[in-house]
Amino acid sequence: MKYLDKAGISKIFIIIFHVVGFIGFSIPDYHDFFLSFVPYHLLLMAAILMANQKEYNRNFWVAFIFVYLSGYLIEVVGVATGAIFGVYHYGETLGIKFLDVPLLIGINWVIIIFSVGAILKKHFKHQRTVKSLVGAAILVGLDFLIEPVAVRFDYWAWENSEIPLQNFTAWFFIVFVLLRTYYELDFRKSNPVAFTMVVCQFLFFLGLNLTIA
């Protein structure tokens, strides 16, 4: 039997951790236990994704830092003003906060931008704007699934418990800008685990939506 390479092992880890997380989130008696591991899960997924990048040149790190800081600072402004996504605040699930925003939220932006960016790399050749628009639409769809789960498990909470349309509109434009910048920076964007990462996230949040409905 042919041995598994790094990408193959990484895909297995991604699938296992999402399946285990889904089971844990689905059983009320284990909610608190599994919620305490959410920050570590995000860090692990980011580490796996980055470990499978094909290149780590200067532009890669510029993209990484740009996406992290942009995502984090947009959230800081969003929480402080309510002017970007709507009025919301973060709970305790995502871990340590600075300026009322979890430091890990920037890592989440890195995971979704680098994953979808890598998937769409081979499509719409030389049409960076089209790639970015398609990627933004995909991630708004993911956010649509994330929101009810996030509210249920204290990731964040919305004013009057209503998720505003403004949130999804803002997500679309922010993701578009982040992806457009990602594609402008010249580094090898291939990542063999990106598709597995995105599919697992979609299935994880879709499954939880059906479970907690």
Rank of each mutant, 00 (worst) to 15 (best):
L178D: 07
R152W: 05
M197W: 05
G117T: 03
V110H: 14
G78D: 08
K6A: 13
S161C: 10
M197V: 12
H126V: 13
W158N: 04
N209I: 04
T196N: 07
I15T: 15
L73I: 13
P102M: 10
Q201M: 09
P192H: 04
F66V: 15
L179E: 03
Q53M: 13
Y155V: 08
H123P: 00
F168Y: 15
L4F: 14
F176G: 01
K54M: 06
A83S: 12
E75I: 02
E159C: 03
L49Y: 11
I65F: 12
L178T: 00
A7N: 10
T211W: 04
I16L: 07
F17C: 10
L4E: 11
F17M: 11
A170D: 01
T211G: 03
K131L: 10
G82T: 09
F172T: 05
V62D: 11
V199G: 13
M45R: 00
L206P: 10
I138N: 01
S36T: 09
F205Y: 15
I15S: 12
H41G: 15
N59L: 11
Q127N: 15
D29Y: 10
I107S: 14
Q166I: 06
R180W: 13
L4M: 12
Y88K: 06
A118Q: 05
G24N: 01
H123F: 08
W61I: 12
I163P: 07
E92W: 05
P192I: 02
Y68C: 08
N191P: 13
F205W: 09
V87A: 11
P192G: 10
A47K: 07
Y88W: 01
L185D: 05
L142P: 08
L4I: 11
I27E: 03
V38A: 11
K189R: 11
T196Y: 11
L179C: 05
L145V: 12
F64C: 14
I146F: 14
G24C: 06
I105M: 14
V101G: 08
L165H: 03
I27T: 14
I119Q: 02
V140C: 10
P192L: 00
C200W: 03
A7E: 13
T81N: 01
L206C: 08
G106P: 08
T93F: 00
I9K: 12
Y183V: 01
I14D: 03
S10N: 02
V130H: 01
G91I: 06
R188H: 09
H123W: 04
I107V: 15
T181Y: 07
F114P: 00
N57G: 06
Y183S: 03
F195N: 00
M45W: 01
E162N: 13
L210N: 07
I27R: 04
F22M: 08
N209F: 02
H18P: 00
G117C: 09
G21T: 08
F187M: 13
F195T: 04
W109A: 12
I12Y: 04
F37W: 12
V79P: 01
P148Y: 07
G71Q: 13
V149K: 06
S10D: 00
F37C: 04
F153H: 09
L208R: 05
G141N: 00
V76E: 06
E184S: 15
N167F: 11
G78P: 02
F153G: 07
W109V: 06
M197C: 12
G135F: 02
